[in-house]
Design a protein around this nucleic acid. Structure first.
Lengths: 197, 197
DNA sequence: GTCTATATTTAGATAGAC
DNA sequence: GTCTATCTAAATATAGAC
């Protein structure tokens, strides 16, 4: 499974359309057109719109989660290095797929809780090496949550509000790119300053 | 117009359901049920699902925008006071309607650009008294954008990712409320520290 | 203004030929 | 595996009685 070229084309197209429009607004006909295949092939390969969707969001949650866990449990990096690695990890993902954050977070809010359990934000930080390092700096576990939440906020928000952020930066795309590039360089330092790390 | 009790009930119900599920996932039947009125009355009063939606999102954009503009152009408050007022303004709104941010931002990303033009984030900061005060502190206009973006990020992200934020804080709602209350008290200071204001 | 019944349109899914 | 044609269900919208 996953071997057929058609099957792959459908999944790629579905990823793109689901990310852009969300599950509900996506028409299976849009996916078929985007993939350049016959409509009936979607059901042939994936049985239903919903099961195709599940496969894609499952992968997307993995993208959101996996590198983050690795970075946060690396015993060979300092806290400060971890922060910068988290920033760079997400920027490299979102620069390719800027609509991924809205896709994931919208479905987190609207579909059943299973997706959030799969993402398991509490599990990611709790008992992580990141948490341990912060505890050693004298930070309580509540403070760890604030630090994590602020880091993620500063990274993800301008992608969640991509269209608004672009408008904020002016009409041209260059202004936006400049601001975003600057953020990538500065977010970890902001967090360090904010929490006196 | 807007005088009939039925008309009001429909709009209130629509606001609630649209916020919870988004435009596409909302069924007019859900709105009718929520309002406790006959399905046909939605079209009688509002002509179509879409025009009802437009009326609501128009109001929602106003809620997002209006107080913010007033606060940012108040000549009688310091920068630091403005930051805290912005935080408190949004918290008081979102505590009543926690799904409002996702509703607005999702539609910003998915519907036509007219909504973002109506919100006009660039217009809000540009030539505001807030910007003027920051310029006087030696901050460039790019820096003003970063300051504004960070403020809004720290405020809104935990509401946009409401479900995730709750999971992050643990299973019980109390942990979440405690963290959020703490943020309300600390965000403005975080920004002041981060940008040395 | 409100209801019931229904028209219309759209979209997911499948049957069956090739 | 792929296509055409079609079924079925769902959802918006409306006609017309009360």
């Amino acid at each position: 499974m996953g071997n057929s070229i058609t099957e792959q084309k459908i999944k790629e197209a579905a990823r793109k359309v689901f990310q852009k429009k969300g599950f509900e607004a996506t028409r299976t006909r849009d996916i078929a057109d985007e993939a350049g295949v016959n409509l009936a092939l979607i059901n042939y390969y994936y049985r239903s719109k919903e099961s195709l969707f599940y496969e894609i969001i499952h992968e997307s949650i993995g993208i959101f989660r996996n590198n983050l866990c690795i970075i946060m449990n690396d015993k060979d990096t300092t806290l400060q290095e971890k922060l910068q690695l988290i920033v760079e990890n997400y920027y490299s993902i979102f620069e390719r797929e800027p609509q991924l954050p809205m896709f994931i977070f919208h479905e987190f809010e609207n579909k059943n809780e299973a997706f959030i359990n799969e993402f398991d934000p509490h599990g990611i930080i709790h008992n992580s090496y990141f948490e341990k390092q912060l505890n050693e700096c004298g930070k309580s576990n509540d403070e760890v949550k604030q630090i994590f939440m602020n880091t993620v906020s500063l990274i993800i928000f301008p992608f969640l509000g991509n269209a608004v952020a672009k408008k904020l930066c002016g009409e041209d795309n260059e202004g936006y790119k400049k601001i975003m590039e600057q953020r990538k360089q500065r977010i970890s330092q902001w967090i360090i300053t904010m929490f006196n790390l």
